[in-house]
Simulated scan of single mutants.
Amino acid sequence: MTEWTAFSVDISDHVAQVTLLGPGKGNAMGRAFWTELPQVFAELDADPEVRAVVLAASGKHFSFGLDLAEMGGDFAPLLAERALAGPRSRFHTLVKSMQASVTAVADSRTPVIAAIQGWCIGGGVDLIAAADIRYASADAKFSVREAKIGIVADIGSLQRLPAIIGEGHLRELAYTGKDIDASRAASIGLVNDVLDDADAALAAARATAAEIAANPPLVVQGVKDVLDRERAATVTEGLRYVAAWNAAFLPSEDLTEGITAVFEKRPATFRGE
């Protein structure tokens, strides 16, 4: 396997474990993450020995989501006064590229089982929504937090979570940007089970991956393909729409305020401008 910056990959007994490594604090998703994620899954898809993938994370937290410190500059041309077609078009291309990175996980030919500990925020939820099965440690906390920054979530949560947790729960999380704990996540179906700690969550994910890997691989791939087909067109159309929507309407004083508030570690004050 290739050496990666944002991930480590270990393969044994037909199971690949992909582990987020950062390098940003809390495994924040910077440029290396978005570039390498589809490459990692392309290599795994090309390996006939891989029959299941465990998606894990190093450290205390799964992911703080988008690395605003590293990628905030990508928003700057869009927030410039009277941003014209050029910066909007480039931002649209960026969003579609980031969407494609997470879609590579959803489109994996083999099932993906996520093990989540600590915070799983924003892009972290986008990522686990692309997995097939999710296990959480008791200390895990989840947030579809984009609204609190002035952003419409555009990498997959709004498209994939309705089939996982239902419209009502998704609307509550996406409209409020609230945090929920592992118990609530399990009660709404966001995670399959809650384990005592991070090690137990990872062990559960690996045990399920081993069970899957012991089955006929072509049958498992067929089951995944049939299940995914039902919603693939809806997800694709939703991603296309939100990328265009954000390129057109995301620039706002509220977005500037939301990003500034994050760096200044204070509550944002939004004015609808």
Rank of each mutant, 00 (worst) to 15 (best):
A76H: 10
L227I: 14
Q159P: 10
A209Q: 02
G73D: 08
D197E: 14
G59A: 11
I155S: 00
R266P: 02
P162A: 12
A200H: 11
V9F: 11
L55M: 15
L250P: 00
S137C: 13
W119E: 10
M98Q: 14
L190V: 07
L79W: 01
G86Y: 03
Y241V: 14
K60A: 15
A213R: 00
Q221S: 13
A56K: 02
S157N: 09
V95M: 03
P38L: 13
V242A: 04
S137D: 14
G189M: 13
R109P: 00
R82Q: 03
A209L: 07
D126Y: 05
L170H: 06
R134D: 05
G123Y: 00
V102A: 04
L158F: 02
E43C: 14
G86R: 03
A85Y: 06
R271L: 07
A42D: 15
C120T: 08
P267C: 09
S63L: 12
D228C: 07
A214C: 09
A52H: 06
L20R: 13
K25P: 13
L250I: 02
Y241N: 13
L84F: 06
S101K: 11
F62C: 11
T256E: 00
L195M: 14
L20F: 15
A56C: 08
P111F: 14
V102E: 08
V223S: 11
A182H: 09
E264W: 01
V191P: 01
D193H: 13
A247W: 01
F142I: 11
F249H: 06
V220T: 15
L158T: 01
K265G: 02
V125D: 01
D10K: 07
T260K: 01
D179T: 05
V95E: 03
L66V: 05
V262G: 02
R134Q: 13
A106Q: 12
V54E: 03
R51M: 05
Y175F: 10
A114I: 08
A57C: 06
D225R: 15
P217R: 09
D225S: 15
G122W: 00
V194E: 06
A32T: 13
S97E: 15
S12W: 09
L170D: 03
E273L: 01
D132P: 01
I165E: 06
I188Q: 07
F142K: 08
D47M: 11
A147F: 05
P216A: 08
V15M: 05
R88H: 11
L68E: 02
F64I: 03
D197V: 08
P267G: 13
P267T: 13
G122I: 00
